[in-house]
Amino acid sequence: MSALLEARGLKKRFGGNEAVSNVSFVVNAGECVVLAGDNGAGKSTVIKMISGVYTPTEGEVHFDGRLITGRSAEAVRSAGIETIYQDLALADNLDPGLNLYLGRERTRRILGLPFLDRKAMRRDAVDVLKSLGIVVPDPTLPVRDLSGGQRQSIAIARAIHWQAKLVIMDEPTAALGVPEQREVMALIGRLKSQGVGIILISHNLPDIFAAADRIIVLARGVVAGERRPSETNDEEIVRMMMGATL
């Protein structure tokens, strides 16, 4: 089986600085790959090259059998890669249904005029969230009234509702309490079981070991090593993050 995503020899130079060099890895369907590394290790630069925000200076990204290097962020999204940023990019004053459909709202015609179909969008949101094991107490409330974990789940629901095959998550548990962190971890498990590939960015060791099928450690812009959680431990990962290549 060929990989869902394959990054080959990615390099990004900003002016004279080489932020990332020769980064290669694969992500299979239904697999969670963690990009681990300290601040400034190049994790964000790598995912931005995949999501189309940056064009790599060198290297290629293949997704679903096609070369997607150099495509715009919009084109990468419609190819099936969704990125969930730390700030989630939700409209806090709108309900989950409208957030799910933002930019692609459903309408129905009354006397020839298009009207938003708020009810249908809300119903779909409740369904998608339920498939992720999340129950929102009152789906008519704006998402600002939801918990951090529920808000995260809406951002994830938006990704899978639009048939994303690969979801990139940037530090999804950074702003959450412990129970909500568990919720997000469980959510990642469910996404995997639905065959979605995941790239998780994290420097939180418990998260890394809880979620990862494979851990790719970046240090100073290069891959310091790749491990399966069963073959390694906290100490080794930390050492690799600090730049001791093994």
Binding site: D92, N93, L94, L102, T107, P114, L116
Partner: peptide, 14 residues
């Protein structure tokens, strides 16, 4: 009742 309206609210929030 329109997409334009929803985007206006969303723009004001984020």
């Amino acid at each position: 009742h329109t997409k334009f309206g929803v985007h206006t609210y969303a723009l004001g929030a984020n």
